[in-house]
């Protein structure tokens, strides 16, 4: 009952947030400099031709009319047609979204155990050699931008060692195994970029929990250390790390843009960048809205998980 109420309230807030975001996206693209007519028709198009193009695409009407129309479509799952290719935006985005989703999933699967194991090791052996080493490593990870890291990986593992392809032509993959191999370098890059935050976060949380009374109690009741960490400490340390993970999850979908570009990965990030270049407003809007939705959903998910992991929020007194 309490739980359902919390979820429902959060879901309502999430929808409201998404609505506001949709308006901001639409207006932002509206004030973006550059003329789609000039882009599509080329440099030698006359003013009449451009006006005719705008009239045909309905671009000459006031913004609020177009926003209302767009929103009405979006609610029904129709994001409009691409101004450039005239395909429906949904058809343009969907395959790319699928690719990005696969990449994100792969990165996420690497990220979770990676951060939990390293974060726990760091905390349990705090101020020891392992901790110092990991702290240094994560600090380096934090200070290198992911495109540098990606390029570095591409160079070392792709060019020098030749172990993984540098350009990820995922659509050409013949088998699942090959697809996985192709995606490994971008996925690892993403996983590391996310994990460095999470490891530090988890370490600090876990140290705090390891100093708590209930962990001391578990030790004094004769529970072996690995069990103390896994059963008593970790579940309580994960709660705050979850919010970082939610932000990371969103970063995965949104922030992949750069990493996708480095590996020429045909995902939503690459599509977004290309569409911005072309001033293809409906595609940009579609991509941006989807990325925002994922972001909001990820946070909703983290909120719900916090409640699930914390019985104090889940059960009435």
């Amino acid at each position: 009952m309490v739980f359902a109420r919390v979820v429902l309230l959060r879901a309502l807030w999430a929808s409201a947030t998404l609505l506001i975001v949709s308006f901001i996206i639409f207006s932002a693209i509206e004030i973006l400099p550059g003329d789609i007519a000039a882009r599509v028709l080329g440099r030698y198009a006359t003013e009449e031709m451009k006006a005719e193009f705008r009239r045909m695409r309905g671009l000459d009407r006031p913004m609020y009319v177009r926003y209302g129309e767009w929103l009405y479509g979006v609610v029904q799952g129709d994001f409009g047609d691409s101004l450039v290719s005239e395909f429906n935006v949904g058809e343009v985005i969907l395959p790319k979204l699928k690719n990005t989703f696969l990449l994100a999933l792969y990165a996420f699967i690497l990220y979770i155990p990676f951060s939990i194991i390293l974060g726990s090791l760091s905390a349990v052996f705090r101020e020891g050699a392992v901790d110092t080493f990991l702290s240094t490593l994560t600090l380096i990870g934090l200070s290198i931008p992911e495109f540098v890291m990606g390029t570095l990986f591409a160079f070392i593992f792709g060019v020098v060692l030749g172990a993984f392809p540098v350009v990820v032509a995922i659509n050409m993959a013949q088998s699942f195994g090959e697809a996985v191999r192709m995606m490994t370098l971008p996925a690892v890059t993403l996983a590391i970029a996310m994990a460095v935050y999470a490891i530090r976060m988890l370490r600090d949380n876990l140290i705090e929990v390891l100093d708590s009374d209930y962990v001391r109690m578990a030790i004094l009741k004769g529970v072996p250390l690995p069990r103390v960490v896994l059963r008593h400490a970790l579940p309580n340390a994960l709660v705050p790390a979850l919010n970082v993970t939610a932000l990371n999850l969103a970063y995965l979908i949104g922030g992949v843009v750069v990493v996708e570009k480095v590996f020429a990965f045909p995902g939503i990030g690459t599509l977004l960048i290309d569409s911005v270049f072309l001033r293809d407003a409906p595609v940009v809007e579609g991509c941006a809205l989807i990325i925002s939705a994922v972001y909001i959903l990820a946070n909703l998910f983290a909120d719900v998980m916090t409640v699930v992991l914390n019985p104090r929020l889940r059960t009435a007194r």
Partner: peptide
């Protein structure tokens, strides 16, 4: 040898 701490509220694992 077993132990009983001062503050039972913080000495029990909150999630179990």
């Amino acid at each position: 040898i077993s132990f009983v701490p001062q503050n039972p509220t913080t000495a029990l694992s909150p999630g179990i």
